[in-house]
């Protein structure tokens, strides 16, 4: 099951550049939450702070607190543990090109020392089913490489790979922006299905996509979280003029 995320006074820097400024919000469990805003507004930095990927950059720095469920991820917890509990899917599908479909999905578990072959078979099948890819690849699991799939299939393969380690939170950074409309629809349907089991945070430039998949939406601008509210409120009657100006195309 998914867990809630509580962010308090989160600040992030790249060198001297202050990219996130005092962000506080609560992301509810088992909901999809969309983050929107113009390029460079801080939304991707924000999700990278949720699984401590931001600090992988040597000049990056973070202050504040992020709680994933009861786990305070910036205090005494290994990033490896965190990334097992918080999966991430990126803009461009990145399957391991030389691995089979099966091995791609199994890779995270194997890295964690999982060796039970029968259980591995079950988990790979379950993950591919959850990612709505099983029916399309079940006959080629070990024969075809991940790279042989279409872009949309590759992205669902990456989602399956993420789900295989059974995370509680799924972060998605523009997961459909490189995909055609049919593949995009499949990813969106998948998000809808998955939120009953996971907490999903999705960064998107596509506001219609945010409106379609997310119950809550946050609008970022210049490192600030300007507004966070129910998606229907944000897209029909936002409280802040800056949100309205952005989503109606009056700036950006």
């Amino acid at each position: 099951m998914g867990v809630g995320i509580e962010v308090k006074e989160l600040n992030a820097w790249y060198g001297e550049t202050h990219t996130l400024r005092s962000i506080s919000l609560k992301i509810p469990a088992n909901h999809a939450t969309a983050l929107i805003g113009p390029s460079g507004c801080g939304k991707s930095t924000f999700v990278r702070c949720l699984n401590r990927m931001h600090e992988t950059n040597p000049i990056a720095r973070v202050t504040g607190s992020v709680k994933i469920g009861d786990l305070d991820i910036y205090h005494g917890v290994s990033p490896v543990v965190i990334r097992r509990r918080i999966g991430m899917v990126f803009q461009l599908p990145n399957p391991f090109p030389t691995m089979s479909i099966f091995d791609n999905v199994a890779s995270g578990l194997r890295l964690n020392g999982f060796r039970n072959k029968k259980a591995l078979d079950e988990i790979v099948e379950r993950s591919l089913r959850r990612a709505a890819l099983w029916d399309e690849v079940k006959d080629d699991l070990r024969r075809k490489s991940g790279a042989s799939l279409s872009g949309g299939q590759q992205q669902r393969l990456c989602i399956a790979r993420t789900l295989a380690v059974d995370p509680e939170v799924l972060l998605m950074d523009e997961p459909a922006s490189a995909l055609d409309p049919i593949s995009t629809a499949k990813i969106e349907d998948l998000i809808f299905e998955l939120k009953s089991e996971y907490t999903i945070v999705i960064v998107t430039h596509n506001m219609q996509q945010a409106a379609r998949v997310a119950e809550n939406t946050g609008f970022f601008l210049n490192g600030h979280l300007v507004e966070f509210d129910a998606t229907t409120k944000i897209f029909t009657n936002p409280s802040d003029k800056r949100t309205e100006d952005y989503i109606t195309g009056r700036f950006g």
Partner: peptide
């Protein structure tokens, strides 16, 4: 145009 907010209203 898939309008939003005040434009949609």
């Amino acid at each position: 145009e898939q309008p939003m907010a005040v434009d949609l209203r």
